[in-house]
Simulated assay, not measured.
Amino acid sequence: MARKVLCRLLVAAVAACLAATVRAGWLRGSATFYGGANAAGTMGGACGYGDLYSAGYGTDTAALSSALFNDGAACGECYQVQCDQKNSQWCKPGVTVTVTATNLCPADYSQPSNDGGWCNPPRQHFDMSQPVWEKIGVYSGGIIPVFFQRTACVKQGGVRFTVTGSNYFVLVLITNVAGSGSVKAVWVKGSATDRMPMARNWGANWQSLAGLAGQALTFGVTSTDGRTVVVPDVVPAWWKFGQSFTSGVQFPI
């Protein structure tokens, strides 16, 4: 009998150790959901990705509180999220999901941070699409405590560039970024112009005030983990505003 008790204690200790290992490096936050059962309400958003299906992000997405969103610098980042089942009855235990940051969850200062103002600073909060939230939480719970951590983004194909704007205001949306998922800096070089830095306009949109129409465009993109990829002539000289071009180059995982 004593041996059985000892074995049970050892099993419990190992389980606790494994649980602690899983939590190591994870942060605490909270999560709600939005966008409806089909996630239609999540399309668009403060990163500028537009239709999240055609952009390759689907419904495994989240709007981040401003403490995480970082004025758009977090657009495209990937996070693993799991419900903190020790502190909520609304968890679906044993499930971890990966979501991509595609939107901002704005602060609501008319509500207290612990009762409705879930995205108020300094809260680290995920307003997830309903389909992915329901993988880790019970619908009637509404809000759950979570553990979360950054994780590498896995993408198919190369980095994508969508060019909009006008002759002297070129706006480039950069999507399908693997690795860190988010972009820190961008430069552009036209076939008839020198290399020049671009500035973040909003979300994942980067701007140049140079006249680039009629030129083939080369981009250098630096991710937030410090890696840079150079994409030569990814946009051909015959490009038109509103077109998208996918490179054969991608960030390593």
Rank of each mutant, 00 (worst) to 15 (best):
D71H: 06
P252K: 15
V177L: 06
G56K: 07
Q215T: 14
G181H: 10
G226S: 14
P106F: 10
A12R: 11
N103T: 00
Q124H: 08
A16D: 01
F245Q: 11
S65L: 04
P232H: 15
V14H: 10
L27P: 00
C119K: 05
G50I: 10
A152Q: 04
S166A: 09
L18S: 04
D115H: 10
V99Y: 03
T224E: 15
Q111H: 09
I144M: 11
G157E: 04
V235T: 08
T32F: 13
G226N: 12
L18R: 02
G117K: 08
L209F: 15
T175L: 07
S113V: 12
L217A: 08
W206T: 02
T59F: 09
G242C: 01
L217R: 00
G248R: 14
F251K: 09
L68P: 04
A185R: 15
P252H: 12
T193Y: 02
T164A: 06
P93C: 10
T59C: 11
V99G: 06
V5E: 12
V14A: 07
V97D: 11
S140R: 09
R227W: 07
Q89D: 06
V230G: 13
S208E: 03
L212C: 15
Y57C: 14
E77V: 02
P232D: 14
C47M: 04
T32K: 11
S244V: 03
V5P: 13
S223H: 06
S166G: 12
A19S: 05
Q89F: 11
M43T: 06
Y139G: 12
G29L: 00
V159C: 09
A178G: 13
T32V: 09
V177P: 00
A62P: 00
V132D: 12
G214Q: 14
T98S: 05
N38P: 07
L6Y: 15
G203K: 01
S110K: 09
S129C: 02
P93F: 11
K86I: 01
M198R: 03
K184A: 13
A13C: 13
S166V: 05
T222D: 01
G41C: 05
A73F: 04
P131Y: 14
T102F: 05
D108I: 05
F161D: 08
P106Q: 09
G58P: 08
T222K: 04
P145V: 07
K155D: 04
C47D: 02
T246H: 06
T32I: 07
